[in-house]
């Protein structure tokens, strides 16, 4: 009987100790981070952004510099542009770095967002298997979409209301096609995962160039159509204000947005990926006229 008591106590204590005992050994960063985030007065902001900026590794390069220079901790939520804008609308994010211009303009017109500024661009590329069953190599994007639909060749869509998905839907409507049927497959996942699916199914897909370049080596997909002015992929930074919610850190949002368009940051963006891929993944555009991009 005493043995039963002892074992019972030992069992609970052991698990409790194991749980708490590892806390200190988790080290400075995580321990202080949890303390920092428990107090909203700390300098911590939430950035809602797209999967492409995270999957390409750009944010890993930029954010530590921002934190070092400004003292602001950044919590990144990498989702599709549609969800990122929705988080902004609800006041659950302080700054947005997104690439869905039409949706952004509508959102800013609602009035809860502050300034929206041009940050950078790259472009979308239409990818497909080397065999190119629909014969779209070298055609314009609208023609390519038409051919894919006519051939009912497999097309893998993000299907997640991201900026890339919005661009893809725009291309379908330009081509006068309503995609549907078993050849049109929707993953509902981020760009990296969608590229993977398209590669495995030997299908066509639309991707931003940055994510494609960072994963090209492990994919059996080639760029088949590129260079249309309509394929520009433009990123803006949007600051949220307290009109979206009382807990929005407008000061952090402004600090982040100002930093993103500052000359030194723009140089970092222009250099990102050059060493590894032989070409930059993004073109910095702060202060430029958006209408003249890509000329």
């Amino acid at each position: 009987m005493r043995r039963g008591i002892l074992i019972g106590i030992a069992w609970i204590v052991a698990v409790l100790l194991a749980g708490c005992g590892t806390a200190p050994s988790a080290g400075g960063p995580s321990a202080s981070a949890s303390a920092a985030s428990a107090a909203p007065a700390e300098k911590s902001l939430i950035l809602a952004t797209t999967t492409s900026t995270q999957d390409s590794g750009l944010l890993d390069e930029l954010l530590p510099v921002f934190t070092r220079e400004s003292g602001w901790q950044v919590k990144t939520v990498a989702v599709g542009s549609g969800q990122a804008i929705e988080l902004g609308r609800r006041g659950e994010a302080d700054a947005l770095l997104v690439h869905s211009p039409e949706a952004e303009e509508k959102f800013v017109a609602e009035g809860s967002a502050g300034a929206r500024r041009l940050v950078m661009h790259n472009d979308f590329v239409l990818l497909g298997p080397k065999a190119d069953p629909a014969g779209v190599r070298g055609t314009s994007s609208a023609d390519a979409m038409k051919k894919i639909a006519n051939a009912e060749a497999v097309f893998v869509s993000r299907g997640d209301e991201s900026g890339t998905h919005a661009k893809e839907k725009g291309l379908w409507s330009q081509a006068g096609v309503t995609p549907g049927g078993s050849w049109y497959q929707s993953t509902g996942q981020g760009m990296g995962a969608t590229l993977r699916v398209a590669g495995e199914k030997a299908g066509y897909t639309l991707s931003d160039r940055a994510t494609y370049l960072t994963q090209r080596d492990s994919l059996e997909l080639e760029v088949l159509s590129e260079g249309d002015p309509g394929l520009l992929n433009v990123y803006h930074v949007i600051e949220m204000t307290q009109k979206a919610g009382g807990r929005v850190r407008a000061d952090g949002a402004k600090a982040f947005a100002d930093w993103m368009v500052a000359p030194a940051t723009q140089r970092l963006i222009g250099e990102f990926g050059r060493a590894k891929f032989g070409q930059p993944l993004f073109t910095p555009d702060a202060g430029k006229d958006e209408a003249k991009l890509g000329e």
Binding site: I12, V15, L16, A18, G19, C20, T22, A23, S25, A26, G27, P29, S30
Partner: peptide, 24 residues
């Protein structure tokens, strides 16, 4: 990597301990 490993253990073991305290 060690930060990730330590956090995994800390979160999961603490959660298990709390679940025991409540669930038992």
């Amino acid at each position: 990597s060690w930060t990730i490993i330590a956090l995994t253990l800390r979160v999961s073991l603490t959660a298990t301990a709390i679940a025991l305290l409540v669930g038992l």
